[in-house]
Design a protein around this nucleic acid. Structure first.
Lengths: 345, 345
DNA sequence: TTGAAAGCGCTAACAT
DNA sequence: ATGTTAGCGCTTTCAA
């Protein structure tokens, strides 16, 4: 398994490694004879020589890869983001994806590991406050969906507050007043804004968040679990709609609601953020705010390219739009246990 | 953005790079004075020095990363696989994920690029025949779901033929005889086996594949598209069930069937391979054969570890089990256009 | 206990 | 047209 080196090729041909290097890099025009050129090419083929990329970028000081660090590829959203980045960087840089160990979110160590390779650029999707607080740029870096970040890095954001506003107005226009919020226990700007934005817009429209629960992670299973342990209480309080911080949680809630016979949307409306492609196939189709992950990735890729060339391109915020589907409907006329007015918990 | 090097640290402290190296690698016991040790540590902290991983693995000839190459992370299955590998290799190696450019499948170039870094190991998920035919190992490599591969590499496979058998028996036991197969235009063993296995088991049980269509890629949109352009013909032939080569396609079929008012499962049953977590939340819940992507990844990680240590651990085949859900039901008593006997096309 | 020096595989001046 | 040489940032003998 010993790898073939340029020295091996040179010895095989009987020339210097410099000549091999010139040929490999296509710099041979007028520098290497047709003769030698052909023999080197042949030797490369015979020996199956592949230049060692790390050695090469060490020598040239121009790395050839960038890396995307994201919380969890099992959430299709990040698959989309990755795909967008690959698309916009294709041909220019190789793109590697990195996640934290153990399916948990990534932390500063994960980022430092990613920075340890010599890379041309870095994209951080959804960084936690901890990551942001300790982050030291070692190469051009762009942030995705990190709306309140104070670090001086280019960002491509999602207009989260507006997304929350759309959900809030949709729900209140359907007559929902007592709303539960299923948050995730992650210290990230985007989730802070989801909750705060929702709360603000709800209040402005006569609604309120009357109950909140926290998922430990953004997974379907967690969504189910938290719903099952909260529903009895929420039901008693007269909750008619649940907003989830992410589709993954909403999926879990929908599944669990089915399992205990809570009719959606007749008894309970469900809305969420992300609108991953599967959301519209759900039973019932899920009302969700669309974040275009692929476009987000594409833009991040372009910003990274600019940053690598030394042009800071500033921030950019993508708009979202609500997809109202069958998981939300008018609030039941007399919420079963609505013995109180919104806001009075 | 100039990166701090060990030389910078050495100059700052006023010592040699060798001493810095020893401290960084924890080899300082009895070789470096407490004095110097402390000063170097302090300098590392002040300057925020991070060893260049590529330089380091160049020098030691012991790389610290492995890479997983897979077709498309937007298919949650590969997200699971990745997660499994990360889990089993966590702490030992960093794991990078690579895909082909443009959302298409990866090809030999993608693999060669991945091999160009200096890496400890490589995992190829679902390699095409083209990739396999041109593949040259440059480091320990393991294959995932590449059942007929003749290359001499460790593999972790899925018992695809048995998966097909389960689907076939399930469908025929429900009385289905005229079955359409939605294949994908990919030259891969796993898809060959899905189709051949299905065909064989169907025949053995009185059913038959009476029509086949091909998707260009494994996406929900492609599933819808191909279904819409095929259904009229299939309907005419009396097809009562469709088997899809992957859940992604099945999702598209289900969505499209809804859109044109074909009742599932009353008129049409749908079954598929993979059972990604969203399958059971579909409307109706999708009958599918479970492939445990995460476990597959975990096993691949272990095999890779063994291979790196020089132990070839051979092949391993994972069993699957059918999840019969509401998307499959007894065939309609008189298939609308069943004017012919199975097999007579 | 510390430093000098060679070398990992490659590129890029600079010689010849 | 080709080879020699000096590094890229790091580790690792080997001397001091």
């Amino acid at each position: 398994m010993k790898r073939v080196t340029s020295r091996d090729v040179a010895e095989y041909v009987g020339c210097s490694v410099a000549s091999v290097s010139l040929v490999v890099n296509g710099q041979h025009e007028g520098r290497i004879s047709e003769q030698l050129h052909a023999r080197i090419l042949a030797a490369i083929d015979v020996l199956d020589y592949r230049p060692n990329q790390s050695a090469r970028s060490l020598a040239t000081r121009t790395p050839s890869n960038v890396v995307l660090v994201c919380p969890d590829v099992r959430n299709p959203f990040f698959g989309d983001v990755f795909h967008g980045i690959v698309e916009s960087l294709s041909g220019k840089y190789g793109v590697d994806l990195r996640v934290g160990p153990g399916g948990a979110d990534y932390d500063s160590d994960t980022v430092r590991e990613a920075q340890a390779g010599n890379i041309a650029g870095l994209v951080l999707a959804n960084p936690s406050h901890e990551v942001l607080a300790t982050f030291q740029a070692t190469c051009p870096t762009v942030l995705i969906d990190s709306p309140d970040a104070t670090v001086s890095l280019d960002r491509v954001d999602i207009d989260i507050r507006d997304a929350s506003r759309q959900i809030a107005e949709h729900l209140t226009s359907l007559g929902h007043r007592w709303i539960a919020y299923l948050d995730v226990r992650r210290s990230k700007d985007t989730f802070v804004q989801r909750r705060e934005g929702l709360e603000g817009s709800l209040r402005a429209n006569g609604g309120n968040i009357v109950a909140t629960a926290f998922a430990d992670e953004l997974s379907v299973a967690e969504g189910s679990k938290v719903f099952l342990s909260s529903w009895q209480e929420w039901d008693a309080v007269g909750v008619t709609a649940i907003v989830c911080a992410d589709d993954m949680l909403a999926f879990g809630v929908v599944g669990a609601a089915h399992s205990i016979g809570v009719p959606i949307p007749d008894r309970l409306s469900i809305a969420s953020y992300n609108d991953i492609p599967f959301a519209q196939l759900l039973d019932p189709p899920l009302t969700s705010v669309t974040f275009d992950g692929q476009e987000l990735g594409r833009l991040a890729g372009q910003k990274l390219l600019a940053a690598i060339q030394g042009d800071r391109s500033g921030n950019l915020t993508m708009q979202t739009h609500l997809q109202a589907r069958a998981s939300t409907a008018p609030a039941p006329p007399t919420p079963p246990a609505a013995t109180r007015t919104p806001g009075s918990r």
